Computed example of a mutant assay.
Amino acid sequence: MDFVLVHGTTQSPASWARVATLLTAAGHRAIAVDLLTPEDLPVEGYAQHVREQYGGERPVVVAHSGSGVLLPAIAEALGARALVWLAAYIPDFPGGKCLRDEARTMLEPDWIGVDPTADPAKASEFLFHDCDSETEHLALDSLRLFDPAVLAAHPAGPAPEIPSTVIVPTRDRTLKPVWQRRAARERLGVTAIEIDAGHCPHVSRPAEIAGILTGRA
């Protein structure tokens, strides 16, 4: 099975290193793609950018955090067999709102306006508070900002007709867990899988995430 791993808005592909290693050890292929480009692209442009980095067929596509905006387009471009939303923004498929319209509803108030890439202490507080010291050091090395305007402004289209799994970290300090659960149910028609972790469980709980991915695939 192929897994295409899509980083979020505050980390590079390096954030997937441990999960990718575990998936490979279990006999799968894991490709951590890089969304960063020299210039901002439309949503379809980022989907094609991912397509250029992946040469296989019908992968499971896993998106973290703000890259949930891009997940439907990436899935379509790759012919994905399944989607996984990991502590991810789930677009407002029923109502057509964009992420910017929903920010104050879905984000924890203390997270709004924080740039963790400019402040390691804030990164530790909001993203990596559940990591041990060694993992936290590795996580801080993976910090990188990816925040093109299209993520905030892109209106939701129709819901993807591809099986979805939603993983909700119950100690998320950035994206409200209660919002994630409700969005999974109302926007994708699924019950979320909950994990005792912060916003980046692929960093802090890689074995558990790899286990969920292989089990659901």
Rank of each mutant, 00 (worst) to 15 (best):
H129T: 01
D141E: 08
P72A: 11
P148V: 02
A17G: 04
G96R: 09
R182A: 15
P59C: 11
Q53K: 09
S67L: 07
I193L: 14
R81Y: 00
A197V: 11
L23N: 02
T214E: 00
A153P: 02
A26R: 13
L5T: 02
T21K: 15
T214P: 04
G79F: 05
W111D: 05
D132V: 10
A20K: 08
H202L: 12
G8C: 01
G215R: 09
G96M: 07
R104L: 13
I112A: 08
L140Y: 05
D147K: 15
I212A: 14
R173V: 13
H199L: 07
Q48N: 14
E102I: 01
L127R: 04
K122P: 02
W179G: 00
D141L: 09
V150N: 04
V6N: 03
A103P: 00
I212R: 07
K176E: 12
L70D: 05
G215Y: 11
A32N: 07
T135W: 06
F3I: 11
I90P: 02
P116D: 10
D2K: 02
K176I: 03
G56C: 09
H137T: 15
P160S: 12
P72G: 04
P169W: 05
L140I: 06
C98F: 01
E194S: 08
R29S: 13
Q180E: 12
A25K: 10
H202G: 04
A103S: 09
G27S: 07
V62G: 10
G56P: 05
S12Q: 05
A25I: 03
E57A: 14
S124P: 00
A25H: 07
W85S: 04
Y54G: 01
S133K: 11
I209T: 01
F93R: 04
D147R: 15
G95H: 13
P59L: 11
I167Q: 00
F128P: 04
P59I: 13
F128M: 12
H7E: 05
A82F: 03
K176N: 02
T191E: 14
L127A: 09
W111K: 08
A159N: 02
R173G: 12
P13L: 01
A217Q: 02
R181W: 04
L143V: 07
S12F: 06
V61F: 05
R81E: 12
K176W: 00
R81H: 08
L175H: 07
L145K: 13
Q48L: 14
D130G: 02
D130Y: 06
L188N: 06
R173C: 12
G45Q: 10
E52T: 12
L213P: 06
D119M: 09
E136K: 15
